[in-house]
């Protein structure tokens, strides 16, 4: 990716525009996220990935579910959809299939994508639907007050596990690989350059792509567990993260305080849903097959 570099003269920094601004709805700032929350950092990386992707951004759409990360769609200066809880992926599926020239990004949280929306995630991966899923994993339901989620590690305290979480959590990257994702990576908000590069990479990759980003939640996850503030989480990521590209995802489960394996784990080519559909219909119907023209005309 290209570094965001502005050639600015010394005296004009006060009027210079932040290079991410064209990619955001600046009329909606400040955003709702807490001080020290990492979601904004992931959005920052996403804006830079959009910039360096060279894509026509009129043809990039973003779809979010509900929750803190669910608000990302509302801040991206793209065609953007804030849908219902857990259903960003099936909405994105309809959007992509009706208008295949769109690059459709799903941007949502761990609770939204893997608890209420878990079924949609595995099926979209199975179909190799050509959508890019970015999951900001803050290990909790933050918007509703810090309840236990499908990615909350055992032994932490949450609003609904006041005596400690005892149920096992999902290893999101393993789940994604097993379900059939074409691309699987994990970073933390400490790894801004790598994260941005991964985001740019999936914007050019066909098929179901998944990036998990571990992100601080000082207000609702860390506070209850005496884990300090957002900066403490960032320092923790720096300390315990190990980059292991191609690591078996089965070895990448997260724990409360253990090592965080980051890197690109899966990058494979499988025919995506539309390719399979076209192939099957052409094989069985031959000339009778009409390539889908789904959008309706005006008047």
């Amino acid at each position: 990716m290209s570094e965001a570099i502005l050639d600015i003269p010394l005296d004009s920094t006060k009027t210079a525009i932040n290079p991410v601004e064209p990619y955001l709805r600046m009329d909606r700032m400040p955003h709702i996220w807490c001080p020290g929350c990492g979601i904004g950092t992931t959005v920052n990386c996403f804006a830079r990935a959009l910039e360096s992707s060279g894509l026509n951004l009129d043809k990039v759409a973003i779809v979010s579910g509900i929750g803190c990360t669910g608000r990302v769609a509302g801040y991206a200066n793209l065609d953007s959809f804030h849908t219902t809880h857990g259903r960003a992926i099936p909405f994105a599926t309809g959007l992509k299939l009706s208008n295949p020239e769109l690059q459709v990004v799903v941007y949502s949280g761990d609770g939204d994508l893997f608890a209420i929306g878990g079924n949609h995630f595995i099926h979209a991966a199975r179909r190799n639907m050509d959508i890019k899923v970015i999951c900001v994993n803050n290990l909790t339901y933050a918007m509703t007050g810090g309840q236990t989620g499908p990615a909350t590690p055992t032994e932490v305290i949450s609003a609904t596990s006041p005596y400690g979480v005892f149920e096992p959590s999902f290893n999101l990257v393993q789940l994604a690989e097993a379900a059939g994702a074409s691309y699987v990576a994990r970073w933390t908000t400490y790894h801004v350059k790598q994260l941005s590069r991964s985001m740019e990479e999936v914007l050019h990759k066909k098929g179901f792509c998944f990036i998990e980003v571990l992100s601080p939640c000082p207000t609702l996850y860390q506070r209850r567990n005496k884990m300090g503030d957002g900066l403490d989480a960032m320092k923790f990521y720096k300390e315990v993260s190990k980059v292991r590209h191609g690591a078996p995802t089965s070895e990448c489960a997260l724990t409360r305080a253990g090592e965080i394996v980051v890197g690109k784990f899966v990058d494979r080519d499988r025919p995506d849903y539309l390719e399979l559909l076209n192939r099957q219909m052409t094989a069985t119907l031959g000339d009778r097959y009409a390539t889908p023209e789904v959008t309706c005309s005006e008047g």
Binding site: F91, T93, L95, L97, S98, L277, P292, T295
Partner: peptide
């Protein structure tokens, strides 16, 4: 043979929102 798409989704929640994604895509 008409030129369109049917997709069988994983449940009714998915089906009822996939159609809305398709509408905003122009269908």
């Amino acid at each position: 043979t008409v030129g369109g798409i049917f997709i069988q989704m994983e449940d009714e929640l998915a089906a009822s929102i996939a159609i809305q994604g398709a509408v905003w895509g122009g269908a």
